[in-house]
């Protein structure tokens, strides 16, 4: 029965990774940049939710919505101020700027909320854990996390395949110049992508801190790197790839911790990533792009 319990926990962590990885992968697909500040947007989202529920005493739903709004605005602002002026420059320049933004967010958070960890109250604290088959426990957090991520995945798949904006996003990620010639507003599409990615990051932040209730200015960075690994794992730029990669990574991490070693879980997770990339250089669901001479 243990194995089932680990599987469920793995899927729960993996769902959070998947939501974060979606933000990475969409931005990479469209703007061709590694947005290292994404992990810190997660942290900001969690802090906003914390402030709204604890300081203002508003209901949880308001906290989640408000943190999504703040993160969306934050995402658009970061993109407009820091990344947009560098469009068309080598990706390394944008990468360093993203690192600058990441430092900025972490240190601003430290100034505002101090570096003392805050204990985040779970958003589903009033839900009793389910007990199945005696030894199997499913907490409310797990149910909510998995449900929310399923809704997000279905919604995002529908959005990118059926709506006008979603289609233009796919067009821009396929070929930016051709999309521009077809009359798609590339700058606006990129801004919208950042907005969606940041809103998802806020959700991920709230869900993550509900399961692991420690909130610090550096809370976002390690899950950020993990989720980024997940995005690469599934094939960066591919939306179903990010979902698959995230969930697989969560399962691998939980199993590695349970059956192999807690201390070496980082080495195992990153080792699996390297092996996958060596066998399939574009990730699990990524497209291998042929270089033209």
């Amino acid at each position: 029965m243990n194995i089932l319990q680990y599987l469920i926990n793995g899927i729960s962590i993996g769902s959070v990774y998947a939501i974060i990885a979606l933000g990475y992968t969409m931005v990479y697909g469209i703007a061709k940049m590694l947005n290292f500040a994404h992990g810190d947007v997660i942290m900001v989202g969690a802090y906003i939710c914390y402030c709204v529920t604890v300081y203002l005493g508003l209901p949880v739903l308001a906290g989640v919505l408000l943190s999504m709004v703040v993160c969306t605005v934050l995402g658009i602002t970061i993109e407009g101020l820091a990344y947009k002026p560098l469009r068309g420059t080598p990706s390394l320049a944008v990468l360093i700027t993203a690192i600058g933004v990441s430092y900025f967010l972490q240190n601003a958070a430290q100034l505002i909320w101090s570096s003392n960890p805050k204990s985040f109250t779970s958003i589903v604290s009033n839900m009793k854990p389910l007990h199945l088959f005696g030894s199997l426990t499913i907490t409310g957090e797990v149910i909510v996390t998995v449900a929310v991520s399923v809704v997000i995945m279905i919604g995002l798949t529908w959005f990118t395949s059926s709506t006008r904006i979603g289609k233009s996003m796919r067009a821009v990620s396929e070929d930016r110049d051709a999309a521009q010639l077809m009359g798609i507003n590339v700058n606006r599409t990129i801004s919208i992508t950042f907005a969606i990615g940041s809103a998802l990051a806020a959700v991920a932040g709230v869900l993550m801190c509900s399961s692991i209730p420690v909130l610090m200015p550096t809370t976002g960075s390690m899950p950020g790197i993990r989720a980024f690994t997940a995005a690469v794992f599934g094939g960066i730029g591919s939306i179903p790839g990010a979902m698959l990669g995230g969930i697989l990574l969560g399962i691998i991490e939980t199993f590695a911790k349970a059956y192999l070693s807690t201390q070496f879980s980082d080495a195992i997770v990153f080792g699996v990533l390297i092996i996958i990339l060596l066998v399939k250089p574009a990730g699990l669901l990524g497209k291998q792009v042929q270089e033209k001479v």
Binding site: T89, T97, N107, L111
Partner: peptide, 24 residues
């Protein structure tokens, strides 16, 4: 004290913008 890393971050972003941005 607390402001130094935030200043470092802003300097980093500004330097990148000023040295790389096509408009600048």
């Amino acid at each position: 004290a607390d402001y130094r890393m935030i200043i470092y971050a802003v300097v980093l972003i500004l330097v990148m913008l000023f040295t790389w941005s096509p408009k600048v």
